[in-house]
Structure formats: structure tokens, C-alpha cells
Design a protein around this nucleic acid. Structure first.
Lengths: 247, 247
DNA sequence: GCATCTGATGACCACCTGGTCATCAGATGC
DNA sequence: GCATCTGATGACCAGGTGGTCATCAGATGC
């Protein structure tokens, strides 16, 4: 399953020719491609710019990957492998911890990942956001299936250990976690460069992570005076499990 | 300040000619432009497609707005006006409520806005996400200044009324709110069409909003057993107010 | 030294883009 | 009916795009 030779997502992609050239050059091409797609997204990415940066002929790219989309598919498949590997590693190293300790470790290593593989992270962001990416549905399904499965497993553990409030459904918990982690990584990975999207106060990472975890655990509300102001019990917050279902 | 004739963001844009044609045609052009930019973002938006949809000549657009960017600036300025109007209205109608009731109203009316003006909302999303939008810094500053001022005011009120946990700094509270509201609107505005980004469980809006508010107030954690497991008080979660400052 | 095979090459293609401008159609004034 | 003015028009332009392919350079086999 984790063979070294990459699978070919479309008919003959990458071509046998690509697999025969030196691994060093292979990796250089893939790295440059991931950087290009990460910086510009699919449509604005330019094959001309890519081959100029690499110092190779344009024809070579098409000999290797057949088309721009073929190149993207292969590069994305490799990025997916890197992400999967990271998730697998993190999951195995946090199996025994309780929910919030586990979450803290996940965020810490996720942050390290985002900074170590900014290209992979940015490609993922583009897949999530670019509505006109050809074949988007398939990519989106893969990305979301992985992240949702991951977070759902985490939440289920927290629920069955009575660490989480059972009144919130799994789906909602996953949604909130996803939203917060997404923006958190985004803000933390951008804070190095310019203050663009979010201005999180400065400070060491661990302090930021603690603030995040604390919010996820306890929310914004006061613990003292307003606990009596809770709404009556007949107002349910969980969602009905009945409803539209994919069929 | 709220005169009817639009300001001209760049030198002669929109041109006097545009202001002289029938208001109905003016609005048709602006509507089509906002739809085009909302659907495709700045770079993928096509003037050719726009004029074909409108049934007018390409030259007219350039006679009116000088350039693609001039068109975008004017359209964005109009969108900004619509958003500002909505925020102003909402603020005035929630002034007296307490924090969470106010937040609930804000989310409700925000949701209505997103559904009533999907083009405006999507244009905002593109401005936030497209890193290569020409003149992005200025747009981003406007958008974020408005949303941050709005949320900061809200949070400050909650803090001074002792409704919010004072251990979390304003900046963090604003960050969390922004992240959650952003994703919430995104998920709710997409749920109509396909299940793309998030699958919030089905149900009436008010139930969704209640679940969101409840999470913002109380987080995911259990209120019972784990309250004693709070970390020691010497671990501070607020950020040091000293630090790098724009100068 | 010849033949063969293979990967690299970049001129070239059709197509699309934002943008220009000479020309046109129609209204207005007299 | 003529002159003038004004907004509308779309052929046209330069430049960029993804993609093709005849040709070439170099290694290999014998």
C-alpha cells in the first residue's frame, strides 16, 4: 500500500519516461510544481513560469504528465500522501492521552507540519477554496473525508470518555473544531510574513495553543454568575439525527 | 455621506458617460459585474463573458470604467456600502441586548444578509482569499477594519458587562468569533446547493444558531467532573500586551 | 562507424485575455 | 436637411495560455 513508486491517477501519468529520469530531477520537478500550484492555485499557475523556474523545456512537462491537470493530480496525490503520513503519525503518538491533551498535541504537531510543508498546506487550501478547479469534487471528497474522519474519531473518544458535553452532537463538535483549527493554522502560518488575515497577539506558540484549547473547552462565557442563566432544558441544542441522508 | 451618486475610486471612474445612461442599465451592469466577480474571482472573471451576458459591446465597459480593475473597484465600493448599511442597521437594533442575545441576533440577520446578497458575500470571500488580487492590501484593510471594529465593540461590551471570561483577551475573543462566524455563514450559505465544504446537520436555522451560540458560550467541555481539572492559575492564557507593534 | 532508440527541445498552434479606437447610428439644434 | 455631438460598437492588437510535434543530441548495441 505504501509502495515507493507513485500510482498514476490518469491513464499514463506520470509517463514511464518520467519514472526513468533521475530521482533527484523528479523531485525537483515535483517540488517546483507544488510551489507553483501553492502560490497561484490551479488556474493562475503557469506551465511557462514553471519550466522557466526549472530551466527545462515546456514539452518535457507534457511528456511526463500529459496535461496541466495530469501534473496537478500527481502532485496532489503526493501531497495527500505526505498529509496522510503526518496524520497517521500523530494519531499513533496521541492514542493514550485524554481529549484536550490529545488536541493540544495535534495542534502543536499540525502547526509544525504547516510550517515545514507550507506548499502542501497551501495546495490544500486552494483545493478547499477554488470552486472552478477541474475535478474539484473528487479532491474535495478526499480531503474532507480524511479530516472529518480524523476529527470525528477524536470527538467520539472525547464523548465516550465523558470529557465532552454530550448535548452537542458529534457533527457540530467536528464542525467547530474544524473551523477553529483551520483559521488557527491559517493565522499562525501567515503571521510570519505580513499581517494579512488575522492578527493574533504575539507570543510563543504554546501560549497561543493554550488559548485556543482553553476556548474550545470552555468557550467565551463566564463560569460564575451566568451559569444560572442557562436556558431551560426543553430547548435542545443537539440536532435531530433524522433528516436528509445521502443515498 | 450616503449620497446617491457613487464616489469614483480612481481618476475618472465611473466616467461621466456611465452616470448619464439610464439608472436601470447602470444597475443591470453593476449587478452582472458583481455576479461575474462573485462567481469567478478577480482574475478568472472575464470581461468578454460579462458583456456577452449583458448583451452590450466590450468597448462600453472600458468607456465606463477604464479598466477591469476600475470596474472591480467601483463594484466593490458599492458592495461595501451595502455591507456597511447592514452592519449599521444590525448594530442599532441590538444595542440594548446582552452579549449572547445580541450575538444571536447578529448571526440571524447576518445569515439573512448572506442569503439575500450572495454576490456581495462571495465577493468579500474572494477579497479575503485571493492573494493576487491587484491592490489587495487596501481592500483587505477596509474589510478587516470593519469586521474587526464590529466584533471588538461587541466583545468589549461583553467584557465590561462581565458576561465574558476576562481571562481571554479581546483579541483572542475576536479571533474566535470571526473564525466561527465566517465558517458558519459559509456552511449555511452553501448548504442550499451541494454538500461541499461542511456538512452541518439539517434542521431549522434557529436551531443551528442556538448550537453555535451555545458552543461560543460554553465550549465543548463537560461542566461537571472536569471543572476541577482546570490548569493551575499561574498558567496565563491572555497574551502579553507588550510586543511588536506596527510603527 | 553505423543504426537505433530515447529524452529534450522550443518553434509553433489555436484560443483567450484585457484593452484600443476608428467608425457608426441616432438624437439634437437650427 | 444639414451639422454636431455622443454613446455604442466590434474588428483588431499584443501578450499570455495550455498543448503539439518535428527535430535534435547523445547514449547504446553491435
Amino acid at each position: 500500500m505504501s509502495q515507493n513508486h507513485p500510482r498514476n491517477p490518469v491513464n499514463n501519468c506520470p509517463s514511464a519516461t518520467f519514472l526513468r529520469i533521475s530521482p533527484h530531477k523528479q523531485q525537483a520537478i515535483l517540488d517546483a510544481a507544488i510551489t507553483e500550484f501553492a502560490a497561484y492555485g490551479y488556474h493562475q499557475a503557469s506551465i511557462n513560469r514553471l519550466v522557466n523556474n526549472l530551466g527545462i523545456a515546456k514539452g518535457s512537462i507534457f511528456q511526463y504528465f500529459g496535461s496541466k491537470q495530469g501534473l496537478f493530480e500527481h502532485v496532489f496525490a503526493q501531497a495527500k500522501e505526505i498529509v496522510s503520513e503526518h496524520l497517521r503519525f500523530t494519531r499513533e503518538h496521541t492514542r493514550d492521552k485524554d481529549f484536550f491533551a490529545r488536541l493540544s498535541t495535534i495542534v502543536t504537531s499540525g502547526l509544525a507540519f504547516v510550517r515545514e510543508h507550507p506548499g502542501v498546506y497551501r495546495m490544500y487550501m486552494h483545493v478547499l477554496r477554488d470552486e472552478h478547479l477541474p475535478g474539484r469534487a473528487a479532491y474535495l471528497f478526499e480531503v474532507r473525508a480524511a479530516s472529518r474522519a480524523y476529527l470525528t474519531g477524536l470527538v467520539d473518544q472525547g464523548l465516550s470518555n465523558n470529557e465532552l458535553d454530550p448535548k452537542l452532537s458529534r457533527e457540530w463538535a467536528v464542525f467547530f473544531l474544524d473551523a477553529l483549527l483551520d483559521r488557527f493554522f491559517q493565522a499562525m502560518s501567515e503571521s510570519d510574513q505580513e499581517e494579512t488575515l488575522q492578527d493574533i497577539p504575539p507570543g510563543p506558540d504554546q501560549e497561543h495553543i493554550q488559548a485556543l484549547i482553553r476556548f474550545i473547552r470552555k468557550g467565551l462565557g463566564q463560569w460564575g454568575s451566568h451559569m444560572s442563566a442557562l436556558p431551560p432544558a426543553n430547548l435542545t441544542y443537539s440536532c435531530p439525527k433524522a433528516g436528509k441522508k445521502r443515498n
